[in-house]
Simulated scan of single mutants.
Amino acid sequence: MYEHWGTYSEHDSLGDCLGLAAEALRQQGLRIWDLAGDGGHRVTGGNGDVITDIVCVPQSGAVWLTVSTYSPDRALAERTRDDVRAYLTGAIRTA
């Protein structure tokens, strides 16, 4: 099993970050398993090939994010992490 992850901060609210995280997983064709509806800070989803976990933590005037992917296929884990992160950064900056 391989893991690819990255962290960064964006100027966004927690609610918007979690909503965009769910949409990022849908854009990758992943099934969402946990939407953080219980007041949490993470959205998790996947399929038979890859699992992706996005955590959004509110900071002063921003949100700290981590995008982690797990797969037995190293290239798929890396590509999924990169694609999800690209979606998130593009959506947050253009919102």
Rank of each mutant, 00 (worst) to 15 (best):
Y8C: 02
L25A: 07
G37R: 04
I32S: 01
T69F: 08
V55D: 03
Y87K: 01
L88S: 10
V43Y: 06
V50E: 02
S13Q: 07
C56M: 05
Y8L: 08
L65T: 03
I54R: 00
A91W: 10
L65Q: 02
V55L: 05
D16P: 01
Q28W: 03
Y70S: 03
A36L: 02
T69C: 09
S68C: 08
H41S: 13
V84F: 11
G40D: 12
A22Q: 08
R74N: 11
D38R: 14
S68K: 09
A62S: 11
T69S: 13
Y87W: 15
G29T: 03
L25H: 09
T66N: 08
H4V: 09
G40V: 15
D83P: 01
S60D: 02
A21Y: 10
G46P: 00
G48D: 11
R85W: 03
G40E: 07
Y87R: 01
C17D: 06
S60Q: 10
Y2W: 10
W33M: 06
D34A: 12
N47W: 02
G46D: 03
S68M: 14
S60K: 14
T44K: 01
T80C: 09
A95M: 12
Q59R: 13
P58R: 14
L14N: 02
R31H: 15
W33H: 05
L30Y: 12
R85S: 09
E23K: 00
E78S: 15
S60P: 00
Y87H: 09
Y87S: 03
R93Y: 10
T94V: 03
A22N: 00
R74Q: 15
Q28G: 08
D53A: 10
P58H: 10
T69V: 12
I54W: 07
T44S: 05
G46M: 00
V55R: 06
T69A: 15
I92Q: 11
A77R: 04
G19L: 06
C56G: 13
E23W: 09
E3W: 04
S13C: 09
G29P: 05
M1T: 13
G6L: 11
H41A: 07
D49F: 09
G40S: 09
W5C: 00
L25C: 11
R81P: 01
G37Y: 04
R93K: 15
D34T: 11
G48E: 13
T44Y: 12
A24L: 12
T94L: 06
A77G: 04
V43H: 07
G15V: 01
H11Y: 07
S13K: 12
G40P: 09
W33G: 05
I32K: 02
A24S: 15
E23H: 06
R79W: 00
V67M: 07
L65N: 01
P72Y: 09
A21H: 06
G37F: 14
G39P: 10
A24P: 10
R31K: 10
P58Y: 04
A77T: 04
Y70G: 01
L20T: 02
G48L: 13
C17V: 05
S71E: 13
H11T: 11
D53R: 05
G45N: 07
A95C: 09
D82N: 03
M1V: 15
A77H: 06
W64F: 07
G45Q: 12
D82T: 12
I92L: 15
A62Y: 04
H11I: 04
A86D: 13
G48N: 15
V57T: 12
W33N: 04
W64D: 03
G48H: 08
C56R: 01
V57H: 11
S9A: 11
V50M: 08
G15Y: 09
